[in-house]
Design a protein around this nucleic acid. Sequence first.
DNA 1: CCTGAAACGCATAAGGA
DNA 2: TCCTTATGCGTTTCAGG
Lengths: 167, 167
Amino acid sequence: MPNEIKETNTVKQVRHQPAKLDDVDRRILGILAQDSSRSYVDLGQELHLSAPAVHDRVKRLKRDGVIKATVAKIDGCKVGRTLLAFVLVNTKNVVSTKRLLSLGNLPEIEEMHTVAGDSGVLLKVRVRETEGLEDLLGKLQDIEGVDGTRSYIVLSTFVERGPDPGE
Amino acid sequence: MPNEIKETNTVKQVRHQPAKLDDVDRRILGILAQDSSRSYVDLGQELHLSAPAVHDRVKRLKRDGVIKATVAKIDGCKVGRTLLAFVLVNTKNVVSTKRLLSLGNLPEIEEMHTVAGDSGVLLKVRVRETEGLEDLLGKLQDIEGVDGTRSYIVLSTFVERGPDPGE
DNA sequence: CCTGAAACGCATAAGGA
DNA sequence: TCCTTATGCGTTTCAGG
C-alpha cells in the first residue's frame, strides 16, 4: 500500500534533537546525499578509514534516523510528468485543512506542507500537462472550506537536492 | 567540488522525450523511489523475474536517465536545520534573476526554480533557526534588482517524495 | 572507535532459449 | 527480453587493540 497517508508519513516540524555528528559523519552524509551507491571501501579511501569503520558510522546514521532512506531519484519528464508547479491553497480553518491533507496520496503530489501565513497549505505537484494541473486544481477547489489557490508554474529548475549536512 | 552551480545542474523545463516504459519498469521505479537498497534477487521475486533481468532493466533506466541518481535522504532536523521555508523572490528583470541564481550554491538552499507569474524565483530553504532565514533574506535583498520576498514558514510536512512513475 | 581477516551474499558478465 | 550459470567484489561479521 504505497502512497498512503499514515501517521508515520507526517513529519511534524518539531525541534528534533539534532544528532551528535562529527566532521567525518557530515562528510559521509554529504557524499551519500549525492550518491548512495559508493562502496564502503571507496568511501574509506577518501576518508582515510577502513570499510568496516565507514560501515559502522553509516549504520549508526541510519539507526538514528539521520539517513531516513536511500532512494532512486527519478526524472519527472522521463516518466511523463513534464509540468512542475507549486500551489498555495487557502483554507478557511483547520477542518478544511484536514480535508485537504487527505488528498496527499494523489500521485501528482510530491510535497504537502502546512505553512504559516494566510495560505494554509503549500503543494509541490508534478503533472503530465497543463490539463493535469487543471484537474488537480479542480479537485482542490471542490473541497469544502478551500477558499482559493495560487499556482506557480516552474520554468526551469536550477537546484534540487536534499538538506546539506553542513558545518 | 560539491554544490557548485554548473551547466549540468540546470534542468530546463523543456519537454524531454518521455522514455518508453512498460508496466514492469514503472513498478521497479516505484519501488526504488522508496528504497533503492532492495536487492535484485528481492525485486525479482516480487516481480516474478530473475535477478539479472531486473538488473538489465535498472541498468537501462539509469542509462536513459530515468533514474538520475541514487541518494541518501537526510533528516534536516537531525543535522541541525530545524526550519523549513519557501521563499518567493520578486526580481525586476532577467539580469537580476541571473544574479540571484548565482546564490544557488548556498547550503541553505535546497531548491531553486524560476517560475511564471509575477514572482521570478522560488526557493526551498532549510535553515538552522529563524535567524538563519533572516540572514538569507538579507543576502537576497542585497541583490540589485530584487524587489522583495515573501516567505512561507513550514509548520508540518505531510508528504515529501519524488516523482510518481504513475500509470 | 578503529583495524584486519574471513565468510557470505549479491552484483554482474557470459551465453543461450 | 528473459533465463541459468559462474565468478569476483562488496558487504558484513568477528576477534582484537
